[in-house]
Amino acid sequence: MLRRTFAGALPLAMLGLPARAQAKKVVIYTANDSTLNDLVFAAFKAETGIEVEPVAAGSGVLARRLQAEKGRPLGDIIWGISRSLLQTNKALFEPYASKNIAATPAEYRDPDNLWIGNNLHLLIVLQNTKLLPEAEAPKSWADLLDPKWKGKIAFTDPANSGSAYSTVTMLVDMWGGGDAGWKKVAGLFKNLKVLNRSSLVFQGVGNGEYPLGISLEYAGPMWAKGGAPVKVIYPSDGTFAAMEGVAVIKGGPNTDNAKVFVDYINRKDVREMILKATFRRPTRNDVDLTALPGGMPPLSQVKLVNYDEDGWTEKRTKTLEQIKDVLQDSR
């Protein structure tokens, strides 16, 4: 007993063990839904032995938490937030050159390696075909302005969702920009049921609470796989491929383990596993979508619009205030 107590009190260096190796965990701030989190975190722990301590919330909520903790970070990784939020908060990230740089196009990673993209999400409309027959479904973003859809379209509060912010600002530009664009967006908000978290949108459509939802592409095949009457509408007036990524939080308690996760999450076999199970398009350029489930069309078959992501990122704070005003006026 005495010998065991004494040995337990020995400094780690005397035992020949590095101090950092003792912390076999990583704290991950994740904006992804539980299906993806559970899949990835279990597989990551099984392979590496590193325990994941997740903190799940909307991307906007996580970004605000990062900023509040910048003096003493409690997390190691932020994962599943938009390029806009990654760029806005990049001063809070530690540079790390992932092992997967070569397979990730330059447009999907920070030039200083402060973040790297994982997923590409097309901004789309979800339809519950049991509540709304396919023949009666909207075909375009403009169709959603019809007053008949009032209260029937689920959407996420852009203050809590990077993709929702991208959707609103994309539509401002698509609908003429300036006052003209904002006027049409205000008309759209009158038809929306605004929810606090992205997952509530596709759950609402999948469970039959709403006939339509403005969401992300993966939600359609994911819910259809589970037997829900859900399909994806690719708006005929065009859409945008929004990127989500991962970054190492500067000064986090488990930085070495965080870097292991960054390499893991963008590895080709892991991306294929994720697509098969959750239908996220990878940013990697060497994954063959035609050989994988989901039936997602290649980007060449989808009408994509030009979107000034950098410009809208720079004026994010001011724009969120404007969106807040529009949202309040629509109630």
Rank of each mutant, 00 (worst) to 15 (best):
V270N: 00
W149H: 07
K231L: 09
N196W: 12
G60L: 09
W141I: 00
V27A: 12
A68K: 11
G178Q: 04
K25Y: 07
G71A: 14
V185I: 09
S82N: 06
A102I: 12
A228G: 11
P54F: 01
K24C: 09
K24Y: 10
D110S: 08
V287Y: 00
F155R: 00
V125I: 15
K268I: 04
N128A: 05
E272L: 02
I214D: 03
V260T: 12
W312H: 11
S166M: 12
Q127K: 15
L212A: 11
R65P: 03
V168S: 02
K24I: 03
K315Q: 14
K130H: 13
V232L: 07
L171I: 09
S163R: 05
V248M: 06
K259S: 02
K90E: 14
Q328W: 11
E94I: 06
I78L: 04
L275S: 08
E272G: 01
R64N: 15
F261T: 04
S161R: 10
T290M: 13
K152H: 08
G238D: 07
D179M: 13
D288K: 09
Q127T: 11
Y165T: 05
T290P: 07
A224H: 06
L216Y: 12
I101W: 13
V305G: 00
L126H: 07
Q328H: 15
G177A: 05
T319H: 04
G49W: 05
L292P: 01
T5K: 15
N32P: 02
K268G: 03
I233M: 02
R83W: 10
A186T: 00
A135S: 13
A219G: 01
